[in-house]
Design a protein around this nucleic acid. Sequence first.
DNA 1: AGCTAAGCGAGACGGTACGTCCAGTCTTTCG
DNA 2: CGAAAGACTGGACGTACCGTCTCGCTTAGCT
Lengths: 189, 189, 189, 189
Amino acid sequence: MARPRNTESDGLILAAAADTLLRSGYDGLVVDELARTVGVAKTTVYRRWPTKNHLVVSVIAGWQADADVPDSGDAADDVVDDLTAIVTGMCRALDPAPMRRLVAELAAARLRDDDIASSIDALWAERRAATATVLARGMASGALRADLDPELVMDQLAGAVYYRVLITGAVLDQDYARALVRTALAGAR
Amino acid sequence: MARPRNTESDGLILAAAADTLLRSGYDGLVVDELARTVGVAKTTVYRRWPTKNHLVVSVIAGWQADADVPDSGDAADDVVDDLTAIVTGMCRALDPAPMRRLVAELAAARLRDDDIASSIDALWAERRAATATVLARGMASGALRADLDPELVMDQLAGAVYYRVLITGAVLDQDYARALVRTALAGAR
Amino acid sequence: MARPRNTESDGLILAAAADTLLRSGYDGLVVDELARTVGVAKTTVYRRWPTKNHLVVSVIAGWQADADVPDSGDAADDVVDDLTAIVTGMCRALDPAPMRRLVAELAAARLRDDDIASSIDALWAERRAATATVLARGMASGALRADLDPELVMDQLAGAVYYRVLITGAVLDQDYARALVRTALAGAR
Amino acid sequence: MARPRNTESDGLILAAAADTLLRSGYDGLVVDELARTVGVAKTTVYRRWPTKNHLVVSVIAGWQADADVPDSGDAADDVVDDLTAIVTGMCRALDPAPMRRLVAELAAARLRDDDIASSIDALWAERRAATATVLARGMASGALRADLDPELVMDQLAGAVYYRVLITGAVLDQDYARALVRTALAGAR
DNA sequence: AGCTAAGCGAGACGGTACGTCCAGTCTTTCG
DNA sequence: CGAAAGACTGGACGTACCGTCTCGCTTAGCT
């Protein structure tokens, strides 16, 4: 019954925020500036996201939405291939410095604010589901041991990647992705 | 000729900072407040650590200093035991919420500031060296495969732990530590 | 041809505004809040009064409407009595703190906005006319000197009252009203 | 022992504020802008005056400080002359539109905030003292009736002036000042 | 009876200023 | 020179209101 929100603004704001975030990092994103850039009042931003952090979460959520679950069949090698594809995708996405910074800020924000935590958790959950699907397929087809704990495997795979992103800063390339999957699945067949 | 620095202040500041950090997280640590609490001038803090971040790194370094490398001999099981001990130690240390928050903030700080990055890296390196020693021992004794890439194994172990700390928020208890080590080494013997 | 305005709303809004104004002063009157209180859309308010200030003027106009011109005949004392009645009425009306605050805000609004100024001026003019009538009567009957400048007398009477309301904050009671009229007319007979 | 406030800043801020106030009125004075103009951080302004209103009071106080008490002797005519001088001074000072607006805003601020009220009251008190001195002199010399209530006279004089400033908006010139004093003292000799 | 212009509730929007918070630097006086 | 005290710059944050706007719905009164 009331004037509806201008949904276009949502997209414009998110896009501009994403751009700035990638280009200048978390601190480089200034709400006031962002609003001016988009041609929108600051209040319009704050009406949609109560906090800069919330906005950033939305941006990330948008990024996550793109990736998809690969599925190339049931053969043992294919499961490995699928996982390698997933891990390679993660590496490619997370390797660039601005992205690392962002993930770090996000992780920090998550632990600071419960509200944000749930948004982010939903986001990761989706991501994990994709991997879980592939693992389940492998276990069902007998390509992987049936007594495997998928949680643990995922922790090792994603964990190693994020560990390099956030803690050691080591490079993430295709070779690493391949080696990681191979090692992690060594005892899993 | 000049007045010497009051070395006592260093400890007091670090202690108070550690306390606040644990209690209220990174953002809860306000230099102004800290100085007042300790009964010291803000300048005194900044004379010792050029930045809030540097101070925080010092605090963490202090915490790291406590943990040590276990060494229980060469038998196969002992390598597993040693690693389990290390991972359990990490879990115990990192599980509490304030500690998680802190690690997150640190990771973020690391990516924000190169200066900080190197301090933190040195710190992690020390930690990794301990684990590497244990792994090397295992490989030397034949308990583990000789063609193992210790880097990868460590990434998986520490990675899984930090992944739960920073990304999923899942619990870290002794059972998890044990299961993690077992799975990760499944294909390594 | 079109749907007519709901005249009931006018009254409800004015009443609520008057109440808030008296209770919390000019700044305490927030259009958004007012509308919600009355159960009316903000637009409904703004359709009737183009500005918060205009609304406030309406409220005051309502208050003014209550006071009337006394007329007790032509005898000398009666002129004094009439003026005393008028001034006493002013004092009674303007003494309470919320009313003082209001008058102040009005005066400020008047000088801020020409549009408002004219509304308020009309309002004061009415008030002044009443007093002028009494003075004219006195001069006609010979009770007051014929060469009197009624403007000046009114300035002194009303001025003194408003001065206390707005500048000194001094009390306004019946005694003051009486003394004021007596002194002001001392040289006027 | 600590770094002292830069007293120069006080003056610069006040001067710039006074200037803007006179030129653009109360609403035209924007703290952010003011600070930038003076070349000072906004915090520096807020450290000295907790509120824009407090700052404005300071500005006015500065203006008041200039005016002085005239004294031309004890003769009856001289008392009238002295009062006329005072009233003429007030008229000259208060007639310009920006000044009127300012006084109005001040009066409003006074009634809004007790803290401000006391500052302003002190300020008016000083002003009244000057006039009171002249009246007392007149009464002592016999030029004015001994049973005069100086309060009342001052209320009528200043009141009329402020009334025109704040309520009617009528002109304030030298003629008016003269006529006002004459009329007000008509019954006072 | 139906068309239509205006009223209405709801709430988004642009715009503008406010006052607050912190990091890090600078300045002064004392030991 | 070190330390205490606290002023200072600089920059962002989130909030508060005003007055305007845009919806979809409702209601006279003219055709």
